[in-house]
């Protein structure tokens, strides 16, 4: 009980998110226990959320600077399309018609590079040309989506080498009993990518001078400049980092859909912002924890999957519930800042 109280006092926002998750888990346990609490169900969730989870991590970093990144989806799609074409070309060249593991590793290195370049362009436009982040990233998103359209003509790139999906859209740690005595994997590979990225971001924010400077800069860019923080370089780094995370998200999307297209995941743009704000990151910058963002991701995923377990309820209700949760959290925060005082 004391532990609960401590969490409440330390951060009410995090506390509320935890309460909502627990309440929803209990509700699902009561109503749909056997359909919800299955290994497969949790595996599916864990394999899917890294797509937008990775983008949300990047969006969080940008929002801590007081900016916003609306280009994640464009970066993700341009990465996945270009690399899907690349892998297809490589597979066609090879005798087996497939690609090697080393090639997959190379592809991921290339993905990171594409993300780095796109993100750095965002950063340059914001820090050097001084375009407001919302417009710079919006324009770059449109530009990249356009590039995708030009490259693909609006069609999906499919027929990927089997090895790619087989290695990324897979599960490791073979401990789950499957059919006919075989053992199946427990942990989805996509989740590993996300966990590594989340740990990395956590480490950057909490344990490095970059993180400290990022929060300070988000609080006041001007004071940071007067304190000797290289603000321009910090901005470029941050948007580049966000670009790299988005590119990784694109690679996960490529594995999950086994194809790439210019309009995949376009709901994620606003969804990532929603997650980040729901996670308690201040849109004005300077405030926000990765724990809040992780909880928000988990909460949204649990809500969506949970509702899908009720066949009579349209899955479209999920967006309604997301929006309602966001507004509810905001209003609760409002009343925390403006306590209702009884007037005489």
């Amino acid at each position: 009980m004391n532990a609960v109280k401590r969490i409440y006092q330390r951060d009410r926002h995090i506390f509320r998110l935890i309460v909502m998750i627990v309440a929803w888990m209990i509700f699902m346990a009561i109503t749909r226990f056997d359909k919800f609490y299955t290994v497969v169900n949790f595996q599916t969730m864990a394999g899917q959320f890294p797509e937008f989870g990775l983008m949300s991590l990047g969006a969080m970093l940008c929002m801590i600077t007081g900016g916003i990144d609306l280009s994640s989806v464009g970066i993700a799609n341009v990465t996945s399309i270009l690399l899907a074409l690349f892998m297809n070309a490589q597979a066609a060249k090879s005798e087996s018609g497939d690609i090697s593991v080393a090639m997959i590793a190379l592809v991921f290195v290339m993905a990171v590079c594409i993300g780095l370049v796109c993100g750095s362009i965002n950063g340059l436009l914001i820090s050097k040309v001084k375009i407001p982040p919302i417009l710079a990233t919006l324009g770059i998103n449109q530009l990249l989506t356009g590039v995708c359209m030009v490259v693909t003509g609006g069609n999906a790139v499919s027929g990927l080498p089997a090895a790619y999906s087989a290695s990324i859209n897979n599960k490791i740690l073979k401990v789950v009993p499957g059919k006919r005595g075989t053992m199946q994997g427990l942990i989805p590979v996509q989740l590993l990518f996300f966990v590594v990225a989340a740990l990395l971001v956590w480490f950057l924010l909490m344990r490095t001078s970059y993180g400290k400077k990022l929060y300070m800069m988000g609080t006041s860019e001007n004071v940071a400049r007067f304190s000797g923080v290289k603000v321009d370089r910090m901005l470029i780094k941050t948007y580049a980092l966000s670009g790299m995370l988005a590119a990784m998200g694109g690679m996960i999307m490529l594995a999950n859909y086994n194809s790439a297209r210019s309009d995949y995941g376009n709901v994620y743009t606003l969804q990532c912002i929603l997650i980040v704000v729901l996670g308690g990151v201040d849109p004005k910058g300077g405030r926000g924890k990765i724990s809040g963002v992780l909880l928000a991701i988990v909460l949204l995923r649990l809500l969506e999957t949970g509702i899908n377990r009720f066949p009579q309820i349209s899955s479209y209700y999920i967006t309604l519930i997301w929006g309602a949760v966001l507004l509810l959290v905001m209003v609760l925060n409002y009343f925390e800042d403006h306590p209702i005082v009884k007037r005489k």
């Binding site: 606003l270 912002i273 929603l274 704000v277 309820i313 349209s314 899955s315 479209y316 209700y317 999920i318 967006t319 309604l320 519930i321 997301w322 929006g323 309602a324 966001l326 507004l327 905001m330």
Partner: peptide
């Protein structure tokens, strides 16, 4: 952002 989700959900769900 939130209300857009709500409106969309209401239209497509309800």
């Amino acid at each position: 952002l939130g209300s857009s989700s709500v409106f969309k959900g209401f239209m497509q769900g309800t």
